[in-house]
Amino acid sequence: MNINTRKVLGYAFTYAVWIIVTIVTILPVYWMFVISARSRVELFNAPNLIISSFYTQNYTNIIYDRTFQSYMLNSVIVSTGNAVLVTVLALLATYALSRYDLVGKDNIFFTTLTQRMAPPAAFLLPLFLLYTQVFAFGEGRGRWDLYDTQIGLILLYCVFNLPFAIWLLKGIIDGIPYELDEAAYVDGATTSMVIRRIILPLAAPGLAVTLILSWVFAWNEYLLAATLTNFEARTITTGLAEFVTVTGTNWGEMAAVATLTLIPSLIVVAFAQRYLVAGLTFGAVKN
């Protein structure tokens, strides 16, 4: 076999693999889209993968529904707020863990990670009490508490996003040569200047990944949002559960919501594809 045939075969194999992977990946998403384009009666027919007619009502019902508009807005606010907060906090925390000789750094790091491991169901009760009783101010009708607020969710999502973000950034900041900071400090820079001028640009791919993944995790979270919000701060994923009712799950509208929910994530990812690959190293490999 000469080099050329080998190369052609290699390409053919690569394409074959990727076409199969793409089909497998797309098929469920496509089916969701098909469902979202069908009326309830049509769903009962034998499964048909081809979209012959488009039942737009599934979409219009949702898009013009005030509740869903506000769910969507809440989702955007909560996930963006959380992603930004997490990225900023993680940057500071990671810089500290990377550059300062803090007692028990590795322990702090691991302890932080354990926060992400808890099975959430049992933790909902203390969180509920925390949000309605501890962080509650005022009495009677003028009372304000963290329950059912966007800020409440933003803070809460830190529990699983922050550990992940710190881990992601740790390797990247560890990889930035210490000499660069040192030189800046010698020139009289403050810590905040070093972080902004040196670390921030060099860690940009890592920060982008952190931002994106935190955003996606927050956007997709269901259980905590469902339990700790009711009117004002409900997010779009909690809306999905509302379609499952005693008198029939409205699969069409549910799929339409899921499709609509996917779009913002897709846009985010399409723009940030290359960062995703550059930044996902977790510092496991350094060069």
């Binding site: 309605t132 508490d145 329950y147 339990t227 509302e242």
Partner: peptide, 21 residues
């Protein structure tokens, strides 16, 4: 309006804790 399990859980938590939601 929410799902069946959520509805119970939220009502019970609220009434048990007396949070007045």
């Amino acid at each position: 309006t929410t799902s069946w399990d959520q509805m119970y859980d939220k009502a019970i938590k609220d009434m048990e804790a007396g949070s007045g939601i």
